[in-house]
Nucleic acid binder design. Structure first.
Lengths: 325, 325
DNA sequence: CTGAAAGCGCTTACAG
DNA sequence: CTGAAAGCGCTTACAG
């Protein structure tokens, strides 16, 4: 279906301003080689006619585009929504037009949505890949388009990646926990790259503190109920667990439900912002989504200048100590 | 900066397939007047060359576009993120390409982002307007583009609007509350159209139940802390309040913090989904964002067919009784 | 500093 | 059912 008419073109503007099409185009593209007088005439004409620039035509002719697609795995995850909003702000301030799409945690949707977007001449794809994204597919995409991945690492992919220092998150939260407890401590996460990095940090902290009894579980799911069940089962075999490092707030919530008495001995490696003024339930590592957005923009800009972009950017994380004991 | 080369065009496809450009174009636009044999040759050539359709060129030539912009006031609001995801799914299934942008609760950002998007030849704007959106501005936009507003009503605007039946939400939650309490009951909301509608439902329920002592407060803000403070102040003057109807979960949370003893006498007119498996804290009205998305698509389709779209669509709300008492 | 001309990759009548 | 031609609204050398 056609949109409502918007037929005024560069030609009409040129006509009204009494200059040529080229001059109007030069004004539009912020060229410095237009006389101030002509420029003003053009600007007035644009205003008078209500002219709106047609970027499709411009992009087609010039072969350039300032459209950046942000492909989010799950927009209903507050952390991701926050990240998307920051990315939009950053890209916007660098004069890109951001378009956000959600792949709803589905590999198929991610593939099809990116394929569709290719037809719109986007300059780059910034993608938070869904679980089980294929490295080959990603690398192929990256060979034709500018691609940056965020937050989740796709194993063995060569695409540049910006993500929080999950290892450090695991390390810091574990250290904090170990200032109080030095008994049996356990890490609970899933089988993602993220949890692997957190677990590595957890282990290094345990060894640094000379904890002898620690273990790592990596088959949790990101569900409060499943985590609760899992921890209940774990407690049967290992009733002496005295402290728990969780991959994120959701798992932590489940563990807490299973073992309320451990309230002060549960930490989370990844805080999920829920409601700003509600405080923190657990001592946790907080990811700075704004910083991740900034870094992503930098990588993008390097890529567009054909510099070799850093393959992996690790963004710092901060420890947030639970306020109420 | 240029995107990585993608130089294969309809012409190359035609050449390889041994047909003319027109024939390729007809295949691409799903025309039925192409011989099956030719079609297959074209499809094979497309596959072999890795051709990708250039929608900018197509849109420019045809004057049509299937791009729909979804402009969200606040993407970090879980309810809005959920709505955006549903809208994307609905639009996608109707073969539109959705682009989501966030205006971050700022009128200026909303204006500038929509102005930018105009340059990309979008077929329609679906917007959740930020507070204080000017009706004149909106109506002007709607006179040039297809516009649908969602969730928040802009007073005195003529743009079509799809929103939950807030009045009913206020009515149902109040009735539910009044099955237990028949004492002094109060409504707390802000000065938005939404709260006004909820308050109207609240009042009609109070009168239906012949409650004599009820009052309405409409100067709350959507903040847990502010709501807590406000309710504390309210309690000083009206210590006999025995039940509270809140505009949403955030305010309800604040009220609960101020008066924990009222736990079973607080209801919320608008549930904000936070974590799927955590259950409901308050008895509340739940908005069906999927239904809102569906209705929006229907209105859009009517608009595009130049039928007169319904000016206002009220979507049903459901009462969710708190499970644990 | 400005104008005339070519062309980006498509679609769309219009003949054949 | 298929091909040759015009044109969507721009940008970009290239002369003037």
């Amino acid at each position: 279906m056609p949109n409502k008419a918007k037929s005024v073109t560069i030609y009409d503007v040129a006509h009204l301003a009494g200059v040529s099409k080229s001059t109007v185009s030069l004004v539009l593209t912020q060229s410095s080689k237009v006389a101030a007088k002509s420029k003003q005439k053009v600007l007035n004409a644009i205003d008078e006619l209500g002219y709106v620039y047609n970027r499709d035509a411009a992009a087609m002719r010039s072969g350039r585009s300032n459209l950046v697609a942000v492909v989010i795995d799950d927009l209903t995850n507050p952390l991701m929504a926050e990240l998307a909003a920051h990315l939009e702000q950053q890209l916007n301030s660098a004069h890109f037009q951001t378009i956000i799409v959600s792949s709803n945690n589905s590999v198929e949707r991610q593939t099809s949505t990116i394929n569709n977007l290719k037809e719109y001449n986007v300059a780059a794809f910034i993608v938070c890949p869904v679980a089980n994204t294929c490295a080959l597919w990603l690398d192929k995409l990256a060979s034709h388009y500018n691609v940056i991945t965020l937050m989740h690492e796709v194993p063995y992919s060569a695409a540049p990646c910006v993500l929080p220092d999950y290892n450090k998150a695991g390390h810091l939260t574990t250290l904090e926990l170990l200032t109080n407890t030095l008994n049996t401590v356990i890490f609970i996460g899933d089988n993602s790259q993220t949890s692997k990095a957190q677990a590595a940090g957890f282990i290094s902290a345990c060894e640094q503190k000379k904890v002898t009894e620690y273990c790592v579980i990596t088959h949790a799911e990101n569900s409060v109920l499943q985590a609760k069940q899992l921890f209940n089962e774990t407690l049967v075999n290992q009733p002496h667990i005295s402290a728990v490092v969780c991959a994120n707030d959701i798992i932590a919530q489940g563990v807490l439900a299973a073992a309320p008495h451990l309230l002060n001995s549960i930490v989370s490696c990844q805080h999920v912002p829920v409601r700003k003024d509600l405080g923190y339930t657990f001592t946790c590592a907080v990811l700075n989504t704004q910083e991740i957005a900034k870094r992503s923009l930098l990588v993008l800009q390097e890529q567009l200048q054909n510099n070799t972009a850093p393959v992996k950017t690790l963004v710092n994380v901060n420890l947030q100590i639970r306020e109420t004991h």
